[in-house]
């Protein structure tokens, strides 16, 4: 059987809210080392990869590998019934056709149980190659969310260019154009506001803002977002959840015809 308990149930809620508009349904794969999900959006230009480590849970048991297909909209409906401070326990029997979610309030006065029907989903598991990236940028997640939101009111795509000292986001649209530059700033007193750039080679790539905006829904998960860029490779937009795992998004760059 599979059983996992996470004290910060709010974290699961945030994860599902971050991906539910991008992917319709997906298999949650559970094995000894943890809980993961990998799925492409319906247009097949972006991929979501979630991994939550077994030791990130208070209690974790998985006797045999299981793959549980769920419709994200339904999962979200159920998790919305959990309080942000609730502990969440997920439970499923081997070969069961449901997964049970138990919500426990911090004072343990209220205990709720919801069963979600599982479904069969055909999905091929794609390997994610370990790539060397030309540039890696770590910036406050809220800052990135604001940039892609602001630029969306001007254009449809953003050119992200990274040099040694700064990362620039630029767009052009019918009403005009916009450029936002963030300088490297490894501020020591406020680490949550730091912007760090690690570069092998300057790089400039263009992406659809619609997807980046969707990825930015993961902002509540982490203080920082990590962007990894290489010429002709999908950008990686990564949110690390300390001691628990990561949520990564991959998006193909727009290629000039």
């Amino acid at each position: 059987m599979f059983e996992a308990r996470i004290a910060q149930g709010g974290l699961l809620k945030k994860v599902v809210e971050a991906i539910k508009d991008l992917i319709e349904d997906a298999n949650f794969d559970c094995n000894n080392s943890g809980f993961s999900l990998q799925a492409m959006d319906s247009s097949h230009v972006s991929l979501v990869a979630l991994s939550l480590r077994a030791d990130g849970f208070e209690h974790y048991r998985c006797d045999r590998n299981v793959s549980m297909g769920m419709k994200l909209a339904n999962l979200s409906k159920i998790l919305k019934c959990a309080g942000n401070e609730d502990a969440i326990t997920m439970k499923s029997e081997d070969n069961g056709d449901t997964i049970t979610f138990m919500f426990e309030t911090p004072n343990q006065e209220r205990l709720s149980e919801f069963d979600l029907k599982l479904m069969d989903i055909d999905s091929e598991h794609l390997g994610i190659p370990e790539a060397e990236y030309d540039a890696t940028v770590k910036l406050p997640a809220g800052e990135f969310q604001r940039i892609v939101k602001d630029l969306s009111s001007i254009g449809d795509t953003v050119e992200i260019s990274v040099t040694k000292d700064a990362v620039k986001f630029g767009t052009t649209g019918d009403i005009g154009s916009a450029n936002i530059m963030c300088r490297q700033n490894k501020s020591v007193d406020k680490p949550e506001e730091s912007t760090e750039i690690d570069i092998n080679e300057p790089v400039a790539l263009t992406f659809a803002l619609r997807y980046l905006n969707s990825f930015a829904k993961a902002t509540p998960l982490s203080t920082h977002v990590v962007l990894k860029l290489s010429k002709d490779l999908p950008i990686v937009v990564e949110y690390h959840v300390p001691d628990v795992g990561r949520l990564g998004f991959y998006l193909a760059p727009k290629v000039e015809e």
Partner: peptide
């Protein structure tokens, strides 16, 4: 479609 091909090639290289 170029986008899809690029994603496909990337993951196929793993």
């Amino acid at each position: 479609l170029r986008d899809q091909q690029l994603m496909f090639d990337f993951f196929a290289s793993a």
